[in-house]
């Protein structure tokens, strides 16, 4: 029966097509990984579709992890991601809780205000001038504060909070639970899947953020990995990195293949995403992955 299914020509064609699409998505990533793990002598002439490293060598990672500028930017990225996501999730939970209380008097005007704030984008320069006037220019707090709440995620969080069974909330109210206790002891533990999902979305945005960091953080020592990555990989500025050559091993440096070094830097920027990707699959795309009922 199973064999018959696979040998069906239409199914075979469909499988091949979808696998081809999946390959175009994964091969470029695996190629970058293979490039970063190959020795510089082999990586220079390595095929662009090869997915297995040629002459395994960790030289590129040795350079990346010993590079003062890169490593400091990794720590800055972690710092901004952790503090920023904490602010995001706290503000979002507090606001979502207040807005999902039944009969909140000012709910409607506040929702209208938030939706206007979401839809209307005042533009780059007006925002830039506000950051300047607040004295945040050059500080990492500019990047942390400027994306404190995302209205779209706030609305999703409200849906999760509304999913908490009414009778549990009523029981809590009867027991005289304060709003703070209700939020921390009942709503948050019962919406853990939602909070995990939203935390993950926020942290991906934080980790991938480069534009605001590139205009508001002026000093290279405070900037984030994505900004350095952009200078190096997209703008092809190798000078700012070579400038640091005295600090790493001279032999390593003489051998280096820049494309492979770029590949290693890209991989370092992808790793945190891969770490949280299973959380996405577990909570957000669970239903889609479970597939249809008809089987």
């Amino acid at each position: 029966m199973k064999l018959k299914k696979i040998l069906n020509p239409k199914q075979l064609l469909l499988t091949l097509l979808l696998l081809f699409i999946a390959l175009t998505m994964i091969v470029p990533l695996l190629n970058i990984l293979a490039l970063s793990l190959s020795s510089p002598e082999s990586s220079v002439s390595m095929s662009g579709i090869r997915v297995i490293p040629k002459n395994l060598d960790f030289i590129n990672y040795r350079i990346v992890f010993n590079h003062p500028v890169l490593m400091r930017s990794v720590f800055n990225s972690i710092y901004i991601t952790v503090i920023g996501t904490l602010i995001n999730i706290s503000l979002t939970c507090l606001a979502a809780y207040a807005l999902t209380r039944p009969n909140l008097t000012l709910k409607k005007p506040i929702m209208v205000f938030l939706i206007i704030m979401m839809l209307f984008d005042p533009g780059l320069v007006p925002e830039y001038l506000v950051v300047q006037d607040l004295g945040l220019m050059g500080s990492r707090w500019s990047v942390i504060l400027i994306t404190s709440v995302n209205v779209y995620y706030l609305v999703i969080m409200m849906r999760y909070f509304e999913g908490v069974p009414k009778d549990i909330i009523e029981a809590g109210t009867l027991d005289g639970l304060s709003h703070v206790n209700m939020l921390t002891k009942i709503i948050v533990p019962l919406s853990s899947a939602g909070i995990a999902t939203i935390t993950m979305f926020y942290s991906v945005i934080r980790w991938n953020e480069y534009f605001k960091a590139s205009i508001y953080i002026l000093n290279q020592k405070d900037t984030v990995l994505q900004v350095i990555l952009r200078q190096f990989v997209v703008l092809g500025d190798t000078v700012s990195l070579i400038g640091q050559q005295n600090v790493f091993n001279y032999n390593d440096f003489a051998r280096v293949d820049y494309n492979a070094l770029k590949a290693a830097t890209i991989i370092v920027a992808i790793i945190p995403i891969l770490v949280i990707y299973p959380v996405v699959l577990k909570f957000y795309t669970k239903d889609a992955l479970a597939g249809s009922i008809k089987e």
């Binding site: 699409i21 999946a22 998505m25 994964i26 470029p28 990533l29 190629n31 970058i32 490039l35 662009g48 991906v204 980790w207 991938n208 480069y210 994505q226 990555l229 952009r230 990989v233 997209v234 494309n259 770029k262 590949a263 890209i266 920027a269 992808i270 995403i273 990707y277 996405v280 699959l281 795309t285």
Partner: peptide
């Protein structure tokens, strides 16, 4: 196929420039 959505445009540009 869900994975590329989570990569930054810098990373995507880096991969496809190569």
């Amino acid at each position: 196929s869900y994975l590329p959505h989570f990569l930054s445009w810098i990373v995507i540009a880096g991969i496809w420039i190569s």
